[in-house]
Design a protein around this nucleic acid. Structure first.
Lengths: 226, 226
DNA sequence: AGAATGCTTCGACTACCATCGAACCATGGA
DNA sequence: TCCATGGTTCGATGGTAGTCGAAGCATTCT
C-alpha cells in the first residue's frame, strides 16, 4: 500500500468519455471555449462546465479568459504525452477496429499532435533529420546538429528566434500509430506552421487529420524527405 | 465526436484506486497471485478477482496458471510506459507532496521499472553508455555499440545469449522522476539481475525501491559510471 | 477419497458521479 | 439602463460500478 503519485486520481479524470473527448479535441494544441467543448463531447453545457472544473482541478487544463469567452487548453506537453501513451495501449487493446477506415488511414499518415506534426510523414522526416545530422540526439536531449541551422534558414525557418524562447526548440515525442519518435518543440511547431502556410495541406475542421494536397505532398517530400 | 482509440475505456481501468494499486504493484515486472494483489490493493479477494477480470479484458494484464496459482503480470512494456506517463502528470498535479519523504528520495535514486533499473542511477548509467559508445542510438532503435560486446562480457554478461531472444535487447524507457531515458530490454534486465546477484543492493519487500549498500554503490559506480 | 487452499461467480447493497433543467452571475453591446 | 450571450452553480434524478459475504469450482496434498 505504498503511495506513489496519485495515478488513479488523474487516470479517472481521463476515464470519463466526455472528458476524454474534450482532451482529445484539445490534442491539436488549440484552445476551445466551454461551449465548443460541450459540443465536442456531446454533453450539455452545465455538464461540460462541471467536467472542465474537474480537469482544471487536476491541472490537466489551463484557461485564458478573454472578454466573455474562456479558452481552455491542455496545460502542457506532459499531458499530451500521457494521452498519446494511453492511446497507444488503447489501440492495442481496443475492439480491434474491423477495417481501419479511411479517416483512420489519414490519421496514421499525418495528424497534429498538440502543436506539431505526427504520424508516418513526421516519423520519416525525423529519421531523415537524424541521418543528415540536421538534428542530433544525445541521450534524451535533442539538439540542432551541424547541418541544422543552414538547412532551416534555407527553407525560411529562423532557428535563432526559436531558441530564444524558454520552451525547448527540439523535443522527441512518441507516436501511437507508428511506434517511433517524431519532432516536437518549437521547431516542430514552426515546421507545421510552414506546411500550413504554404498550403501544402489543410486541416479539416474538428479533426486532428492533416490532409496533404497532391502537389503539397510532393513539395513536402522534396523538401523534408530529400 | 471523432473516434480515436477508446482512450476513456482503458483510462477508467487505471482510474480505480484498487486497480491502480495493483498495476503499480506490478510495475516491478514481477508476477503476483490474486491474493497478493488483493492485499496490495487493500480489498477483499472477490473484489480483487473482479478487478483482475476487468484488467484482463482490457488486455492490460496477462496471466499464467501454475497449478492452483494464477500469476498476473503486466501485459507488456507498453502498459508500463503508460503508467509512467500518468505518474508523470500526477506528480505535477498532485497535492504537492509536502516534503518528499525518505522513501520518495530512494525511489528517485534507484527503483525497479517493470524489469530493469530506473531512477537517477539508471539515467547516469545510460548517459555513460552512450558517451562511451557502449550502446548507440540511431533514431528510436537502440543497439549495442562498437565498445559494447567487450564491455559486457568483461563484466560477465553474455550479450550473445541475450540477443537470441525475440525480445529486443536494448530499449529506451522514460522516467517519471528524472525526465530522461534509461535502458530497458533484456540487457537492462541482465544488469539489474547482476546488481542483485552481487548483492550490491537489496529490494525491500513490497516496494519498487532498490536500496544500495554503501560498498554496493561504490562497486556499481566503479563498474558502470566509470 | 477427503480435506485444504486458491480463486472465481453470484447476489444484494451502497455510494458515487454523470447528467440535465432551471436559476443565477458576468461581460458586452445597444 | 436594459437586453443578449457565454458560463457557472444548484438540486434532483438515475445509472453504474465498486464492495463484500456466501457459495461454488478447481487443484493439490495427505
Amino acid at each position: 500500500m505504498k503511495e506513489g503519485p496519485d495515478i488513479a486520481r488523474i487516470a479517472s479524470l481521463v476515464g470519463d468519455p466526455a472528458r476524454a473527448n474534450m482532451l482529445t479535441a484539445l490534442m491539436d494544441g488549440g484552445a476551445l471555449t466551454a461551449s465548443e467543448l460541450a459540443l465536442e463531447a456531446g454533453v450539455s453545457l452545465p455538464t461540460a462546465s462541471s467536467h472542465l472544473a474537474k480537469l482544471m482541478d487536476g491541472k490537466l487544463l489551463t484557461v485564458a479568459s478573454q472578454g466573455r469567452h474562456r479558452y481552455y487548453a491542455l496545460s502542457g506537453t506532459e499531458v499530451a504525452n500521457m494521452i498519446e501513451a494511453i492511446s497507444g495501449v488503447a489501440a492495442h487493446s481496443g475492439p480491434r477496429r474491423a477495417r481501419p477506415g479511411p479517416r483512420d488511414k489519414s490519421m496514421r499518415e499525418a495528424r497534429v499532435c498538440y502543436d506539431h506534426l505526427a504520424g508516418d510523414h513526421a516519423v520519416k522526416m525525423f529519421d531523415r533529420f537524424i541521418a543528415e545530422e540536421i538534428i542530433v540526439r544525445d541521450d534524451e536531449e535533442i539538439r540542432l546538429g551541424p547541418a541544422g541551422a543552414s538547412f532551416f534558414t534555407a527553407i525560411g525557418i529562423d532557428t535563432s528566434t526559436l531558441s530564444s524562447s524558454r520552451r525547448p526548440m527540439c523535443r522527441a515525442c512518441l507516436d501511437w500509430s507508428v511506434r517511433r519518435s517524431h519532432l516536437a518543440g518549437s521547431l516542430g511547431t514552426a515546421i507545421l506552421d510552414k506546411i500550413l502556410a504554404e498550403k501544402w495541406a489543410r486541416r479539416p475542421a474538428g479533426s486532428r487529420v492533416v490532409e496533404f494536397t497532391p502537389p503539397g505532398r510532393k513539395a513536402f517530400e522534396k523538401l523534408f524527405l530529400a
